[in-house]
Design a protein around this nucleic acid. Structure first.
Lengths: 225, 225
DNA sequence: CTCCGGATAATAGTTTTACTACCATTTATA
DNA sequence: TATAAATGGTAGTAAAACTATTATCCGGAG
């Protein structure tokens, strides 16, 4: 099970595989907690090292810098989403039903009963909502992209795009639609928490369900034409 | 004309009004150039001061920090968009035509013939595309929002939402739709330039037109139900 | 005209972050 | 057991983000 939940990420994402060592696993688990708590800007390798009981230099042996660590964590989440999608849509033949399931998974509106022992999955999702855009909103996008660091996200989009194209083979914007749905799922959750006048989520309790309704409405309106 | 193009921004956005002094105007004009060139992370008050021929301490008299300066610049853009929307839809009565015009304006697909003497409007738009999310993806969102720093963006959304509600009074997600369209306009342009597999823009030349088509397709599919 | 007060800008710091070079220790293997 | 390779720890540096202090300008009161 553990192996299944630990997808193979691009090896360039790290200098040394954090899953191989005790310190490495501590880095992953503790950085999620700390970024969730402090936000990415205030998060530093020094604070992380103190929390772990290690030193800055040791952390730099695993990740080139804190941005690469963020890319690793976010990539892990995309790979994990992709795994969940494959798992839950495994024997669903109707593409409409598949897309509906996928939207449920990407809005995190489904209940998550799988165990991820090394990682606080809820904390990671909060980090994804607040910080994921920062993985590519950087001057080094093109370099980072060229090195294949966004492979997980692009694979996830490609998988969902295939479902969209199965539903509507002649729809002209399948890639844009999928990336918009993925981005909007996170952004609307962020807005519902911090800038509610930009969202339509009356109560925080039902926010994820409301967002799911919104995304389903967009997807199926657009694809049913 | 100049006064019209210089909307009243929230006074809390700055410590001293940059439009009142020579140095202030230089800060605005030069910071747009520098952020466009370096990206927000590598942009510093020291570099800006050197470029202007001033000092760090002087800049801190105008803006609390570089993040507040970014919020100011981005707010200026939202206010400017809102002005353009009012100007171009002034005597358009059909809400469908108005929304179509608005989408053209927010994708920057329309030709801009207005003069903005103090500001390189094209450079500012590139900054908006690459950096706007960073104005709210910060630990201080709630504080910054409470101080009214996102007023311009929220007013812009509110104006467009009103048009949406005129078209479809019973559509349940007007706020989410508008913020998604606004966010997607920028993000799809970014993707078309840096992560093209997430967009549907075959050539860079037609990117803005393609994105406009995508957004129109979403908006009118959703609202025509 | 000149002296004074307040506003503005420049100088020269401090603290923190991001990173690096170097040293010590442990572990794996010949 | 010897040794080198891997791992971790120490002690820096350069730059960024701010800040406290000092210098300069500028408009009015005497």
């Amino acid at each position: 099970m553990l192996t299944t939940l630990r997808p193979e990420l691009n090896e360039k994402l790290f200098l040394r595989d954090p899953h191989e060592t005790d310190l490495g696993r501590k880095i992953i688990a503790t950085s999620v907690q700390l970024i969730d708590e402090l936000g990415f800007e205030l998060f530093t390798f020094k604070k992380l090292a103190q929390q772990i009981g290690s030193t800055e230099a040791s952390l730099y042996r695993y990740f080139e810098n804190k941005h690469r660590l963020l890319v690793y964590l976010i990539s892990w989440h995309w790979a994990w989403l992709r795994f969940q999608i494959r798992f839950h849509t495994h024997n669903v033949t109707d593409p409409h039903a598949r897309l509906r399931l996928i939207l449920g998974i990407i809005t995190n509106a489904h209940r998550d009963n799988a165990a991820t022992p090394e990682l606080d999955e809820a904390a990671l999702y909060r980090v994804v909502v607040a910080e994921a855009s920062k993985t590519y909103l950087t001057r080094e996008v093109d370099q980072v992209n060229h090195d294949g660091f966004y492979r997980e996200y692009k694979s996830l989009c490609a998988d969902i795009t295939a479902v969209v194209q199965e539903i509507a083979p002649h729809y002209p914007y399948p890639h844009a639609l999928v990336s918009t749905l993925l981005e909007s799922a996170r952004k609307q959750l962020f807005f519902s928490q911090h800038l509610p006048s930009l969202a339509d989520t009356p109560t925080p309790e039902t926010a994820k369900q409301d967002i799911l309704g919104f995304l389903e409405n967009i997807a199926f309106s657009v694809l049913s034409k």
